[in-house]
């Protein structure tokens, strides 16, 4: 799973494009996580502003 810090996210879509599972979507200007996140961390790594964090099950 991904934890999205909504106060930091600039809804730029970089994470959406790099997600190998196509598990992220920008709904208008709001980033949402869909089914299928593999917790690979590519989105968190590439985020220009550091709004994303991978969290594993039970860590929510």
């Amino acid at each position: 799973m991904i934890r999205i810090d909504r106060t930091t996210c600039c809804y730029c879509g970089t994470c959406v494009a790099v997600c190998p599972q196509a598990a992220l979507e920008l709904v208008d200007a709001c980033l949402e996580e869909q089914e299928g996140c593999s917790a690979c961390g590519t989105c968190a790594k590439c985020c220009p502003v550091g709004a994303l964090e991978v969290c594993h099950e039970g860590q929510v």
Binding site: C12, G13, T14, V16, A17, V18, C19, P20, A22, E25, L26, T42, K45, C46
Partner: peptide, 17 residues
Amino acid sequence: VESRFARMCGIDTTVPA
């Protein structure tokens, strides 16, 4: 950049880091 629609049509436009 998001290129979601193509992926939903089966064209893989995922960008590697």
